[in-house]
Amino acid sequence: MRFVDEAVITVKSGNGGRGCVAFRREKFIAFGGPNGGDGGKGGDVIFRVSPSLLTLYDLRLKRRYEARNGQMGLGSQCNGKNAEDQVVEVPQGTLIFELTEEGEHLAADLTDIGQEWVAAKGGRGGKGNMHFKTSTNRAPRFAQPGEPGEEKRLRLELRLLAEVGIIGLPNAGKSTLISAVSAAKPKIANYPFTTLTPNLGVIQGEDGMQLVAADIPGLIEGAHEGQGLGHDFLKHVSRTRLLVHLLSAEETGGDDPFAGFSLVDDELVRFDLELAKRPQLRAVNKVDLLDPERLKKLRQAARDRGLEVRFISAKEGAGLEELVEEMWRLSAALKKEEEQ
């Protein structure tokens, strides 16, 4: 499985080049003054958001990134060459935490294409001996060493950027829904945990606007404690504006037909209270499996409890147009509210 959303790496910037100790030596000039140049600056380690990357897989393969050292200063007042920066490309939505003995803290949140963050600054080059000539010391035989670079351990965490997060119990039909409303082609089968990685789908609007939806792997009871697949992927809905909460019609039996909604809601509360407060569009999927009488009873049960529940069939397309329109409307309203 190539979808990797966490990596721990070490970065080290380059050392500054040492200043040069040199003197002017020319014919007919017996005592030329100091002319040692400065050392070059060490390279920085820079993280840059790349539109071509979707996971942190490459950073799992290479765990250490080092920039080159600056060049040593030369005679004849020639400065050493600055080292090139080491650029590390990461996908959009990457959080970078710096690891220290006291713990970890968030150092950068890279969300925009082309955004850069300097993780470790290169050392400054040392000054050559030409800077240390004084009235009492006409021939200084010393120069500054270059400053050392920085070394840091970093933990990178990818959180998908999507306006809509599609959540629910395993086998609720999340992958079928995202494939029906977008061009995404996730793996679909009628058994739990078909989806092992989040899938992104782009819903195209008539006006050219786009709505990005993420199909999050199924959550089960205890997901906030790492049970099932939920703990690894709950974080991917943390950036979404709204949630589409699916419940399979097959899970609506028993005294409480909507218990599946409550179970997942409870996991969201335990994982992140703010996440649990996100607006939700609730929908019962696979209504094509229900007879008309059973569907009528479910609709009435939702009304009796004051629940706004949509009844859809992602496979057959029933109710999808209304659901997508509501996704557009609510997303636009939330975006406007954020801008204000």
Rank of each mutant, 00 (worst) to 15 (best):
G70P: 15
E221A: 12
S248E: 08
S313A: 05
D5M: 06
G39L: 09
L74S: 13
F142S: 07
I312D: 00
V90W: 02
E84R: 14
F233P: 11
T111G: 09
S313Y: 00
K297H: 08
K187N: 03
E84V: 07
G32S: 03
P198W: 01
L219Y: 10
A276G: 04
Y191Q: 07
A332F: 12
K185R: 14
C78S: 15
N129Q: 13
V87I: 15
K296N: 13
A30I: 10
E326P: 01
R60S: 05
G33F: 04
N137Y: 09
G128T: 09
R278Y: 03
G230C: 12
E206T: 04
G125D: 00
S52G: 11
F28A: 02
R48V: 09
L160D: 06
L281G: 04
A143N: 03
K296Q: 12
G122E: 10
Q300E: 14
L95H: 13
K133G: 09
I167H: 03
T100S: 15
E6V: 11
I178F: 04
A302H: 06
G228S: 09
K336H: 01
L196P: 03
R24Y: 07
V237F: 11
D304T: 08
G230F: 00
P279M: 06
I29N: 12
L243S: 12
L56G: 05
G230A: 08
D291C: 05
G146I: 11
D291S: 01
A314H: 10
F47S: 13
H245I: 01
G123Q: 03
L281V: 12
S262C: 03
A249E: 10
T100W: 05
L281F: 02
G218A: 06
R60V: 04
L61N: 07
D109Y: 00
A318T: 13
G228Q: 03
E151N: 00
I188T: 08
Q227K: 15
D232N: 05
M327P: 04
G201V: 03
A30H: 10
G173E: 15
E221Q: 13
E102D: 15
R329D: 01
G75P: 15
E274P: 00
E206V: 12
Q86F: 10
L234F: 08
H236Y: 02
T94I: 00
Q340E: 14
T176N: 08
L56F: 06
S135L: 08
